[in-house]
Every structure is written in structure tokens, then in C-alpha cells.
Design a protein around this nucleic acid. Sequence first.
DNA 1: ATGAAAGCGCTAACAG
DNA 2: CTGTTAGCGCTTTCAT
Lengths: 348, 348
Amino acid sequence: MASNPNILEIAKLAGVSKSTAARALSGHPNVSAKSRKLVEAAAASAGYQRNHVAAALRTGRIGVFGLVVRDIANPFWAELARGAQDEAEANGRSVIVLNSDWDAAREERHVASLLSTQVEGILISPVTRCLELVRSETPMVALGSAGEGSPNTSYVRTDVDQGVRLGLGHLLARGHRRIGFIVGRSDRRAYRHLMSAIKATTAAYSVDASGFMFEEGDYFPASGEAAASRMLDCAGPTITAVFAANDLMALGAMRAARARQLDVPADLSIVGMDGIEAGTFTHPVLTTVVKPATAMGREAVRALLREIREGGARTRSTLPCTLRTGGTVSTIAVRSRDVIETVVEGEI
Amino acid sequence: MASNPNILEIAKLAGVSKSTAARALSGHPNVSAKSRKLVEAAAASAGYQRNHVAAALRTGRIGVFGLVVRDIANPFWAELARGAQDEAEANGRSVIVLNSDWDAAREERHVASLLSTQVEGILISPVTRCLELVRSETPMVALGSAGEGSPNTSYVRTDVDQGVRLGLGHLLARGHRRIGFIVGRSDRRAYRHLMSAIKATTAAYSVDASGFMFEEGDYFPASGEAAASRMLDCAGPTITAVFAANDLMALGAMRAARARQLDVPADLSIVGMDGIEAGTFTHPVLTTVVKPATAMGREAVRALLREIREGGARTRSTLPCTLRTGGTVSTIAVRSRDVIETVVEGEI
DNA sequence: ATGAAAGCGCTAACAG
DNA sequence: CTGTTAGCGCTTTCAT
């Protein structure tokens, strides 16, 4: 077998012109059944493979999306990437994944590189407000709350308010009042979202927030362990529960508890967010607010396709979370009458 | 800002010819300092972005590798992908990840699609012996033992013999003789490798293998749980330890033990393989044979680059495993004198 | 329905 | 060191 035959050779083999061959191969209607048969046979026998690069140069459509995430090794993002890839594949596209590692410069380089690779669209979970940077015509969908700033950007995010209502509500309904929150870096939009959601849920439960503690983490397990340790070791009445902004930090917090011989959930309750599989292997299983990672990835690609198809149509989806009830939350004795027992858990 | 300017416009803007502009932009030596300045200024002011697709069509080098794995959501492969991406990025390449989901047809489609996308090289953890399929000139590196069949294929694998010596040796050295093995599907090469490694270690320890049980799994947690359940529930003297071919199945086995109120490790010891992070969140921490996932990804990309650079140089690397000692293995009473205590654990 | 011909934007000979 | 020129393989008018 010779090196890759091109469309001209196929055309010759089939005894038609290059254009007819091209039309036949790309399923164009204006081709006689006979020519089509001929071309298909020739292509098959010669092992023809269309050169997508050449086609892309001509059409400007390369069939590749770029996905820029903080870290593909984080199971949540791996899962999301999975969803994006599946949806892309179903639409004849593929996905290039790039890690920014929380580094704004790296992220910018990635975006630039994707743009010059002529990707058809970009999915990005931005570290910075680099969204302005992407004022090229390339369609873009932000993952998470970062897209909200620029009014002209599509995004797919989860409903943080609703998620916190599920997770924090679960704790409040079980009588927890001294709660340690492990949140993200305070300079990020996600942080503000979380804080306002916490405030909202607290208000909905008419609960006094004076027993709340807050610690920052970086979404990695070690930071969750450190944050939980700081709260458990500090003077004064200790916390009865931890609510972490993601599962990896929640799992870190479980480690901190164990290191102090604290029983989970008897001595310390823990609730995470994300719903990664790792949380199902612990004992007890981590109670967590599950974000629909796969669906987010799929939906983001769909938004991209829509934007490509309909020339600039913006999509803004907010997906609901669910609560996975594991065994890391205990009900503690109700000490005062201000606990509202009527607030239903598991609400949407 | 107008739509993407091309190199000709930059050349005009800089007052030089297209080729001089191209040379300046690609860092070619034969350009006067003055022209280079001019071109760079023009490019910057016009916001020029090189069209990689056009360049790729001309040079045949697209700067993209394809990585075909079973499931990117499996932490081991996500980690490996991470390593591959990092190394690719360091060499000005990016990588497209495709999931085969253990489906040979899907895998073949992916490979075909990658080839027609003109990727520079393919990393693949093959489901089938589809390696023959890739008899194109496209450089290819197999991940794992699958590459061994075709003598003309590069591969990067872990040293299974050494890994099993570490993991199984750890159990044998602690007196375990009734061991349940959870292995992969028996029609795959990895299975045969594992079995022969088990035989070798057993021989090295001069141990009687009559207490061994074998169950097949599919590398997902549920199958590990099911396999362990079958072994724990079967009549006769029960197993004291489980050795699983990957961590996800080992974690499934931990669940099976817990469901039966068995204490790990007092009632059942467990050893896994892979070294995924999820195993560090359990209590006790999973003892496991750590495969160097990130290094494998990096090394695979390096092999690809070498093959590209040196035109067909084949690379065959075998990377060593290490043992992560968690708390899932107990020492059981030595019942006979045939336990060789002198075999050192943690050997390389 | 088909063929001829014109590029997509870039690189790489080849001359100067 | 610089400019001219010829394509890479494909899609897509525009005639026929």
C-alpha cells in the first residue's frame, strides 16, 4: 500500500473528476448513483482517508474543541471532560484538554494556542477574568460562575444556591449550629457565590450564624485537611460539622478528624460538594452535594454547537445539584427552640 | 479589529515580502534584525495569530497527538493523560483524548479518525490487537503490555513482575496463604502477565498455591465488590487476603468486606494496584502497588517524539512500581515453617 | 450531474 | 539576507 492516496488519485481510479469524487465522498446530493458507487469503491480499495487538515483549511471548520480546566486529574473535571468528549464525538468533533493549574499566564497561553490552532470553540473554566481576552469570534462557553461577568458569554454552571440549600440545609436540619466552612480563595467569584448562598440558606432556616467559622482552601485534599485542623484545634467551643466547597477538601477534613481520633459522624459531621467517586469508598460514605459533571460537559458542548450553528446564540444554563446522603452526618441534640424542623430536606 | 489578518497583510504592513515575514515570525535565523523588528511590530499591532491549520497542511506536522484510553474518568488514566499532556505541552504539542470504553469497534473508529486528522502520533492502550491496524506511517506508542505482540511497536509499560513481587510478596511475607485474586478478563494479555507474575512470586517464596482463589473483574469497583463477595461467601476455609489487579476493584473489595462486617485488615487484608488517590482517603489507607502514571504518560510522549525525530526509532520502556504501605494488610500467625522471612519487602 | 479552475494561509525551494 | 514562486489536499463556485 502506497502512502496516503489523495482525492485526485481516487478520482482517477474511479474515472471521474476531482470535484465529483469530492462530492461523492462528502455526501453531496448532486452526484449520480453510479458515480457515487464508483468513487466509493475506489476509495475503499485504495484505503483512502480524507485529509482533514486540508479540508479544514478550506472550510475553516476543524472539528476540534478546546477544553481548558484547572486540573484534569481532579475527578470532577475528568468526569466533566468525559461528558464533553462524548457529546463532541456524537457530533463528529473531538476535544483537546489543556491544564491551567490555576495559573493565569498558562491559561492565557492555552487560549492563544487554541485560537491559532483554529479550534471551532473553547470550553473554559477560567482562572481569571480572561474572558475579555476571548473577544475573538471563536465561540466560547464558560464552565461555572465565571461567565456571568461578561453579559455576552455563554455559560454552564450549577445552581450554587440550590446546592448549598441541600448540603447546608441537611446539616442545619439535623441541629448543627457550629459549622466550619472550607471555602475557596476569597478573590474568586465562586467564593462570593458560595458565601451568599450560605447566607441565604442560613436566613431561610432562621439560624444564628455566630457559630460559623470560615477557612480558605485551594480545592486540594491537603488544604482541606489543614483547614479542618485549624478549626478543630482552635480555642473555644469546637465545631460539630464541616461543610467543604469540594469533595477533595471534605475528604481531607475526614483525615484531619481521624488524626484527632474524632469519630465521623459522631464527633464531627462532614458534607462535601462535587459527588466524586472517591467519596463513595470511605467509611462512612461521604455525604455530598452532587454536581452533574457529565451533564455539564455535555451541555457545554451543546451550547458551543448551538453558538456555531446559530451564529452567536448565547446559552446560559444552570443545572441543579442533588444530595447524596452518605453516613458522614449525624443528628445532634436540639438545644433550643429556634431549630425549624419543618424545613424539608431533599428539596429541589 | 478586522477578522484575522494573515501573513500577507503583516508583510505589507511591515513593508517586506511574505517570506521574510514568515521567516521572522517563525524565528528563522536568516532575517535581519531590522526586518524582524518591523515584522514583529506589525504582527503585534495587527493582533496577528498564525494559522496553524495552513502551516500544518504545508508541513504535514499538525502538533497534535491522540490518546486513546478505555476511560478518562478512571483516575489512573486521567493521571497518565495529565503526564502526557504536560510533556506534550513542553514540546509545543497538544493531545486529543478519546475514550474507547473497552469497545473494539469504537477504538478502531477513533484510530481512523485520528489518522485522518493527521495527528502526529498516537498513544493507545488497546482493547484489541488493533495494533496491526495502525500500520500507517503514523508513529504509535502502546501503553501497557499490549505492544509486545508486534515486534515493531514502541511501548511503555510497568514492570508487572516486579509490581506483583512487591504487592503479593507483601502479603506472603506477612503469612497470608489463602489469597483471593481479582484479575482482569482472561482473554487479555494483561491477564496472562499477571498470572505468570503471580506464579513467579509464589515460586520465589516457595509457597503452596493451593489456597489461592481467582475471580475475574472488569476493573470497575462494582466488579471488585462482586468478586470479593463470591470469594468470601463460598464454602470452605475463607480467604485472609485479597490482591486486586487495580485499585478500583480493591476499593470495591473493601466495600464487600464492610458489608459483611469484616474488619480490614484484621479479618481481611487487601492490596490493590495503580496507586490512585482515592485509595488514600479510606480508613485504613489502601496498601497498593503504585504504578507511575504520570511518568508513563510523559515517557510515552517522549517515545513518540523520538520516533518522529529519528524516523522510526522504537522505544520500549518498562517502568518500575513502588509499594505504598497503607493499613489494609495485617500480619497473620505463622502456621508453618515454610514462610520465608528473609525475603525483604520493598525491594526494587 | 459533472468538470475546470480558483484559492484557503502557509512554508520551502530557488534565485537573486 | 530577501523576494518570487510553487504547491500542501481539499472544497466550492462557475460554467457546461
